[in-house]
C-alpha cells in the first residue's frame, strides 16, 4: 500500500500524472477548483497505488509526494 500526497493548490491540471499512471489511480477532481482556478489531479482510486512514483517524476510542478 502506497500513499500519495497531492498539494492541490500547486496543481495546474495538466494531466501528465493521470496519463502516465499505470494503475489508473489518478484523475481530476470534478467537484472543486483550486486557488488558481484549475481542476487539480486527485487520487480517485488510491487503493490501487503501488508507489511507482511515475506521476511524481512526470509532474512539472512538484505537486506529488509518494510514500511506500
Amino acid at each position: 500500500m502506497a500513499k500519495l500526497t497531492i498539494l492541490s493548490d500547486r496543481c495546474k491540471g495538466c494531466g501528465l500524472c493521470v496519463e502516465v499512471c499505470p494503475k489508473k489511480v489518478l484523475g481530476f477532481d470534478k467537484k472543486s477548483l483550486n486557488a488558481k482556478g484549475y481542476r487539480p489531479a486527485s487520487a480517485i482510486a488510491p487503493e490501487n497505488c503501488v508507489g511507482c512514483a511515475f506521476c511524481a517524476r512526470m509532474c512539472p510542478d512538484c505537486v506529488i509526494t509518494v510514500e511506500r
Binding site: A2, K3, R10, K12, G13, C14, G15, L16, K36, Y38, G51, A53, A56, R57, M58, C59, P60, D61, C62, I64, T65, V66, E67, R68
Partner: peptide, 30 residues
C-alpha cells in the same frame, strides 16, 4: 512508510510561472 519521492531540496517553494504541462518544471527538478 518511507518517502519514495519528494520535492528536491535545491528547489524553492515558489509556484513555477510555466504554463500547465510545460516540461520546464521536470527539467528544473532534474
Amino acid at each position: 512508510m518511507a518517502v519514495v519521492f519528494e520535492k528536491s531540496r535545491s528547489l524553492t517553494d515558489e509556484i513555477l510561472t510555466y504554463c500547465p504541462g510545460c516540461t520546464h518544471g521536470i527539467i528544473h527538478r532534474l
